[in-house]
């Protein structure tokens, strides 16, 4: 029976490795192979640089916005008594589970020309949709929960006795936040920034619906693949994979540092 169990476990492990190679390693190898095949084909680097710069900048801005909105939201959810706090928490996390196309559609009917907010803005001559700002809006919409969740977990990890001790020593809410909560949640905040940036730069569905003629990296990959420009799609994919790999490596390093510190 024991031998049977061992064989079963080994079989399952072998199968997992096989599927992993087939689903993840093979596509990466296929990409490298395709790049190798098209080395001689000349590429218009503007097709690459344009989406790359747009993605880097919009993701950076949406991460900054998520940082400044996410930390107060995480603070509210952790330390304040709010009516319907659980519902509030679910709503903040909703973009994690709804399809990005739904997110894009929601933004369209809110900020579009005839949207709830877009219409009065349009009357004032302000157009949001199909602009760089709309891309930032879509990226922030889908990436914000990553910031909130990561920071909130960090806040929750701080022993309440530290907050109580600060109060008895005379510290007010601002001093407790600045002197205790913020420094102790630094690893969580950094993780939040990395995850938010990673989500924002990889965002496709919602951005696609609101970006108009503008192309971020994922949209440019889609467009080039659709129109047969495989050499550009290959390079853009490689760039996006390398960025993602770098982000994950950074995240792992920070996570490891946090563990070591603990």
């Amino acid at each position: 029976m024991n031998n049977m169990g061992t064989v079963l476990i080994r079989g399952l492990m072998g199968l997992s490795i096989g599927v992993f190679i087939l689903l993840i390693v093979m596509p990466l190898l296929a990409l490298l192979y395709n790049i190798g095949l098209n080395l001689n084909v000349s590429i218009n680097y503007q097709d690459i640089l344009g989406p790359l710069i747009l993605s880097i900048i919009t993701s950076l801005i949406s991460t900054i916005i998520s940082f400044f909105i996410g930390i107060p939201l995480a603070y509210l959810l952790t330390y304040k008594e709010l009516p319907f706090k659980e519902v509030f928490d679910i709503i903040i996390n909703l973009p994690l589970v709804i399809p990005p196309t739904v997110a894009g559609y929601l933004l369209l009917i809110t900020f579009g020309k005839y949207g709830l907010i877009g219409y009065p803005l349009n009357l004032l001559g302000i157009t949001i949709m199909f602009s760089t700002f709309a891309i930032i809006l879509a990226q922030t919409f889908v990436a914000l929960p990553f910031m909130v969740r990561s920071v909130k977990t960090s806040f929750q990890d701080i022993p309440p006795s530290l907050i109580d001790a600060s109060k008895t020593l005379g510290a007010g809410e601002y001093e407790i936040f600045k002197e205790i909560i913020l420094p102790l949640s630094k690893p969580g905040i950094i993780s939040g920034i990395i995850l938010t940036y990673a989500r924002a730069i990889g965002e496709f569905g919602a951005t696609m619906m609101v970006s108009g003629l503008l192309s971020t990296l994922p949209i440019a990959i889609f467009n080039n693949a659709q129109s047969g420009n495989r050499e550009v799609a290959n390079i853009l994919s490689l760039i996006l994979i390398l960025i993602s790999f770098g982000i994950l490596a950074l995240f792992k390093r920070i996570g490891h540092g946090k563990l070591k510190k603990n």
Binding site: S161, L162, D164, A165, K167, T168, P183
Partner: peptide, 20 residues
Amino acid sequence: YPPQERNIGFVFQEYALFPH
């Protein structure tokens, strides 16, 4: 009075020292 204004010293069970 809030705790900040009571001027009371408190030694906590697990000390609650600031690790950073």
